[in-house]
Amino acid sequence: MSETFFELRDVSRYFRSKPSLTQRIVTALGRTGPPPALRAVDDVTLRIRAGEVVGLVGESGCGKSTLARVATGILPPSAGEVFYKGRPVTELTGKDRLNYLLKVQMVFQDPYASLNPRMKVGQLVGEALRVHKLVPKNEVGERTRGVLKEVGLDLGYMDRYPHQFSGGQRQRIGIARALAVEPDFLVCDEPVSALDVSIQAQVINLFMDVRERRGLTYLFVSHDLGVVRHISDRVAIMYLGRIVEIGTAAELFAKPAHPYSQALIRAIPSAVTRRRRAFTPLKGELPSALSPPPGCAFHPRCEHAMPICREVRPPLVQISPDRSAACHLHSTSESV
């Protein structure tokens, strides 16, 4: 099979804040340009093979959720193209587009906000099946019960509302809802970070069981390097909207090439005491994506920063057979 299963090619996603009235007047008077766009995802290329688990790691606000939303088609990219099974998804229409949307499913970060509070579990999980008539009417219930059982929920819960469940159970409902439409690619956006630590492992195990049973492909976003190392085939490290290093999990964790990855991985041992969200292995703050530092965005925090780092942005280049990094320490030539 030569076609890539899933690919983001030079994908960017900008957010432009709506200018206030005063800003609009100032702009109209020609004093300043329009407000700068926030580059939540900046020129990312990522290829994912069928059956693979790719971990995506980065600090809060670096654009992981935005990347996940672009991949699943919830947000259109501002630039670049998303390919599913070799076809650019912007060209898909009608049935083909629906097929892409359904085959590439998302599991959300917040198990409280991601379930419609006014729908019962049974309705919620079977909704897409019913609306798109994916299965005959009389089989919707059967399929719904099937996926609920698969994620370990009691079938007696079908008629309950989401608020009657704990976070872990809600996340299972979210997984069941995604599985109901038989996806082949799950984009999991920090699916356990909102859960109690004691529940996290159970839900991670559920993800792995489901993957094995259904032969799914995962893009697994996480704060937790321990989890990512444990479950991923390959790992991508993201910083300020860009992928700064990507490689096989074993290699990357053993010998990180990018100074940012090195700092992250160095911080793992202390992760024994890790708490959710506390993920600041580095000194200094994440710069604003509204005005990223020139050159290498990491240079204000990098201990290896060189003069060139302040001026020239390092491209993501292959540094060994299965590894790429975006750092001047690893660029063989200075050409950009």
Binding site: I74, L101, Q105, M106, F108, A128, H132
Partner: peptide
């Protein structure tokens, strides 16, 4: 949950 609905087309 609105994004989820969009995700289901």
């Amino acid at each position: 949950y609105i994004e989820a609905a969009l995700n289901f087309g």
